[in-house]
């Protein structure tokens, strides 16, 4: 009885020591990919990607399930950065068509309920109770959180207008000749 208790205790202590030393010596750093993706994403938790917030999207990206172009407010730049980090090829030309969007308030039907004001993750909506609200375009990410909340449907998402200052020369038309199909 006593010998069994002693031998099992000694065995337990020894094995515990081995495990403890091994845990110290052979420690593997967490790959940190999730934290890295989290730092890259906008952090607005808008949910347009279909995951529960930016943390969910970062977890999905880290597990290889999420796509590099999953974040619409991040635009082309973020998609390219994520694709680079994931080491995947991404055709960013399709993203260009949608383009960035910003919210705008239709002033004639805004009732000043402050619901959008409270929902905005970037404080881009300016307003007060029973006052017409307005959107600060520079701060709006186009996450669309305010759009379904508005009781009168006064919020629209509009594409950001292209001005001569933001216009980019198109690629020459013959740039991407169709590649011969591999048989």
């Amino acid at each position: 009885m006593l010998s069994a208790i002693i031998s099992l205790s000694v065995l337990g202590v020894l094995l515990g020591l081995v495990l403890g030393v091994a845990a110290q010596r052979f420690r593997v750093e967490a790959d940190g990919a999730e934290a890295e993706f989290m730092a890259m994403l906008p952090g607005t938790n808008c949910g347009q990607c279909g995951y529960p917030g930016c943390a969910g999207a970062a977890a999905a990206l880290a597990s290889g399930e999420g796509r590099a172009d999953c974040c619409p407010p991040g635009g082309k730049a973020l998609a390219a950065a994520l694709a680079h980090r994931l080491g995947v090829e991404l055709d960013t030309s399709a993203l260009a068509e949608q383009g960035p969007r910003v919210a705008s308030v239709r002033e004639e039907i805004c009732i000043g309920c402050t619901k959008c004001f409270k929902a905005c993750p970037t404080d881009a909506v300016l307003g007060a109770v029973k006052q017409i609200h307005a959107v600060i375009r520079e701060a709006c990410t186009g996450c669309a959180k305010c759009e379904p909340i508005c009781p009168t449907g006064a919020i629209d998402l509009e594409p950001v207008p292209v001005t001569p200052q933001t216009w980019v020369w198109p690629r020459p038309v013959d740039a991407r000749a169709p590649k011969p199909a591999l048989v």
């Binding site: 952090g43 082309k76 730049a77 390219a80 970037t122 404080d123 933001t166 690629r171």
Partner: peptide, 23 residues
């Protein structure tokens, strides 16, 4: 085209940074 595209990406990046600050 490439110069404009690179400048646009840089603008996007700066915007993302300022938005993260807002959040």
């Amino acid at each position: 085209h490439a110069k404009g595209e690179l400048a646009a990406r840089e603008r996007d990046r700066l915007r993302q940074e300022s938005i993260r600050e807002l959040v």
